[in-house]
Design a protein around this nucleic acid. Structure first.
Length: 472
RNA sequence: GGCGCUAUCGUCUAAUGGUUAGGACGGAGCCCUCUCAAGGCUUUAAUACGGGUUCGACUCCCGUUAGCGCUACCA
């Protein structure tokens, strides 16, 4: 039974790297008929916030991928304590009574790594019990086997065979002096209890995995399979952080920029993974079908943004591709939500909306474009852009457009009739058809660019078109 | 400092040890055209460096350099 989990700690908003980890877990589960688990790793009481938890949900909901089971580590403290005790009882962990603040200065990088506090590892069980009994504070440390050239090893599904000498692993903590579990312990205990089969997470945990293997062994549980993902980094190669890089690291930034979730998911997948053919635009199902660890890269991927433009150009392009080619019916709800947010009322029926959206989306990049560049299709007050004004100021343009407006009133209103009427008028007036065509686009939309002018007449509708022409 | 991981166009990436090192985004240009897109075509640009192994290395090995990660009673 394949079971994977995404285990964020609620200490900030949903980071785009975390989002990608979630996506890869989800893809792997869906690909192989497994179970996707969302587990909130909230053992660090000091730093957890409800706002963060909410933000994570908000981001995940937008991605619209879902999960099958939900847990919170803070509800499972009992389990963590039991696992710690079991390890301790086997003699694989010991109490370290060294006061917390004592260590700080001691751990300088200078003379090599800190491995354990001398004297504590060798404390007899009797002494240890005695000191604990009188209430002396201690942290429970794993007794890392560092004798006889002992090696800790595991096979990473992405990075391959991994080996580290026990002698290079410090006696890490399992329980803090207040009795709460550390991340390492809680994570492994939960992974074991929840029968997680594959741990898919960021590469920043690759070296921690040796410790985790030790914990699983200590708990007498076969370790899950591990797959580490390359990190997402900033253009300068440093880790993406809220403080340094601001909004770009939050998934809500892309949502608020008018991205389609499926396009954003697509973009994130292409960072550190490839289907190995030349496909770029992929639907959710395409991604599920193509996903495997064999396609995951081992080097960090740069999210290409600048201070002026927080959006990666490729993400924007991908969004435009999805926007323009997905079934209109699927796009409609997103557009309607966008229009509603802007306070626009849809002037005609659903059929008109679908046709119009289909017409204008061909040159849009984000959902925002529908209410900015697409404004004139939905409401009557819209600005005339400078380029459009230029078209209207062409000699003969305004007069011709007003005349066209008058003539159209009597006409049947189809692309063909409008076109023939316009061309006839142009000939009569002795102006080039382009003057009236481009002028009409400017008059109807306030823009010098847009769809074919004759399609546009139909989308704007007879009544509004005539009014706009006569009003130039 | 120690340990681990990584290194292909500006960016994302492809390439059973044998390719003119491919695709995409971005940039430039042309075609098409009622504008803008789209589309078509062309173009720009890479195997970090140095040694091996091999008939042959982007690919395997070693070293150097650089980056990242871990080295907490954070996760």
């Amino acid at each position: 039974m394949l079971r994977v989990r995404f285990a964020p700690s609620p200490t900030g908003f949903l980071h785009i790297g975390s989002a990608r980890t979630f996506i890869f877990n989800w893809l792997y589960a869906r690909r192989n008929g497994g179970t996707m688990i969302l587990r909130i790793d909230d053992t660090d009481v000091e730093r957890n916030t409800d706002a963060s938890l909410q933000s994570i949900h908000e981001g995940l909901n937008w991605l619209d991928l879902g999960w099958d089971e939900f847990y919170r580590q803070s509800d499972r403290l009992q389990l963590h304590a039991e696992v710690a005790e079991a390890i301790f009882n086997k003699g694989l962990a010991y109490r370290d009574f060294t006061p917390a603040d004592h260590e700080e200065g001691e751990k300088s990088r200078a003379g090599g790594p800190w491995l354990f506090n001398p004297g504590m590892r060798e404390l007899s069980r009797e002494q240890s019990d005695r000191r604990a009994a009188i209430g002396e504070k201690f942290v429970l440390r794993f007794r890392v086997p560092r004798d006889g050239g002992r090696q800790v090893r595991f096979t990473d599904l992405v990075y391959g065979e991994q080996t580290k000498a026990g002698a290079d692993i410090e006696d890490f903590a399992l329980l803090r002096s207040d009795g709460t579990p550390t991340y390492h312990l809680a994570s492994c205990a939960d992974d074991a209890d929840l029968k997680i089969s594959h741990v898919i997470r960021g590469q920043d945990h690759l070296s921690n995995t040796f410790k985790h293997v030790l914990i699983f062994e200590g708990a007498g549980v076969p370790p899950p399979l591990f797959a580490h993902l390359p990190l997402l980094v900033a253009p300068d190669g440093t880790k993406l952080s809220k403080r340094k890089h601001g909004a770009v690291v939050s998934v809500t930034t892309y949502r608020d920029a008018g991205f389609l979730p499926q396009a954003y998911v697509n973009f994130l997948c292409l960072l550190g993974w490839s289907p190995k053919d030349d496909r770029e635009q992929m639907s959710r199902q395409d991604l599920i079908d193509a996903f495997s660890f064999g396609g995951v890269n081992r080097s960090n991927a740069v999210v290409n943004f600048t201070e002026q433009d927080p959006i990666d150009q490729k993400a924007l392009w991908l969004n435009s591709q999805h926007l323009r080619t997905m079934p209109v019916a699927e796009l409609l709800p997103y557009v309607e939500a966008e229009l509603a947010k802007a306070g626009f009322k849809i002037p005609y029926d659903d059929e008109w909306l679908e046709r119009t959206v289909d017409l204008i989306r061909a040159r849009y990049f984000t959902l925002h474009d529908f209410v900015t560049r697409g404004r004139a299709y939905f409401v009557d007050e819209f600005p005339i852009e400078p380029d459009a004004l230029e078209k209207l100021n062409k000699p003969g343009a305004r007069e011709g457009l007003r005349e066209l407006g008058k003539r159209l009133t009597a006409e049947q209103f189809t692309e063909q009739t409008v076109e023939s009427e316009l061309r006839k008028l142009a000939e009569e007036l002795g102006v080039k058809a382009g003057i009236l065509i481009n002028g009409a686009r400017a008059a109807l939309t306030g823009q010098s660019v847009g769809p074919s002018a004759f399609h546009l007449f139909i989308a704007i509708g007879k009544e509004r078109a005539v009014a706009r022409l006569c009003g130039v």
